[in-house]
């Protein structure tokens, strides 16, 4: 289905990542490689370290040990500039909907006329054209998250991280977000998304990573991880998920 060739996408690699607190281990990822073509979903129960891993990959948290490599190079400002992240709770600037996009485009040095066109195109893509002048903080949860994704895409990232972007949304809003994610993926953006929704993983993921206790217990093609999991942890999690 999603047969975009892998070489159009930037590869991402985590090596020996470790974060500990008070003698315990919060994150312990010896080696994790994202080089497949489609969206990657990171699954696991609360406290498994999914969000922590995502923040390490994005450079928001510096691990105690290990490193992240992007396209073969260690994560630095140039690499981070090619990444974007969408948070569980969208953090929108206290400006208009268009103003939130303009903020990012202006930072990228785009001239006013070009910005205007780009904003219009982005808003149309997210179905927010009629809300351009409205205060971003007055959007509904689903609209706010759509705007957060548009703002992330406005940076034209090679890699887009999403941290449970739909966990607070209803099915219709979730579907709209998933469509945007798939569209971005089809355009060549590497998607790395944290979720605890197994149905969502089935709908989106080309490959899936299962986390538990700060470790990646399983990573492979989504069909294998989700349908015929090898690890006991993944089997338990999927079983629990199916009952839900």
């Amino acid at each position: 289905m999603r047969d975009l060739s892998a070489e159009t996408r930037i590869g991402l690699e985590a090596l020996g990542l470790r974060i500990g607190r008070n003698g315990g281990t919060l994150l312990d990822v010896p080696r994790l490689v994202f080089d497949g073509p489609g969206p990657t979903l990171i699954l696991g129960p609360n406290g498994a370290g999914k969000s922590l891993l995502l923040r390490c990959l994005h450079g928001l948290i510096k691990p105690d040990a290990g490193q992240v490599r992007q396209d073969g190079a260690p994560l630095g400002p140039a690499q981070k500039a090619r990444q974007a992240m969408v948070f569980q709770q969208p953090v929108l600037l206290r400006r208009s909907v268009a103003g939130n996009l303009d903020f990012v485009l202006r930072r990228r040095g785009m001239v006013r006329a070009t910005r205007k066109d780009r904003i219009a195109a982005l808003l149309a893509e997210g179905g927010l054209s009629d809300k351009a002048r409205q205060s971003a903080r007055s959007l509904s949860g689903g609209e706010a998250q759509r705007l957060a994704i548009l703002r992330a895409l406005a940076t034209e990232p090679d890699i887009l991280f999403l941290d449970e972007p739909t966990s607070a949304l209803d099915p219709a809003a979730t579907l709209a977000i998933e469509r945007m994610v798939l569209r971005a993926s089809a355009q060549g953006v590497r998607i790395v998304m944290v979720s605890h929704d197994i149905g969502q993983a089935r709908r989106l993921a080309a490959d899936a990573a299962m986390m538990q206790g700060g470790r990646v217990v399983e990573h492979g093609p989504a069909s294998e991880v989700l349908e015929t999991p090898k690890s006991e942890a993944a089997r338990r999690y999927l079983a629990g998920g199916l009952i839900l």
Binding site: Q83, A84, R107, T155
Partner: peptide, 12 residues
């Protein structure tokens, strides 16, 4: 505090 991660994510 509220903006911190988002702004850092945007490279500010």
């Amino acid at each position: 505090e509220e903006y911190s991660e988002q702004l850092r994510s945007l490279g500010v």
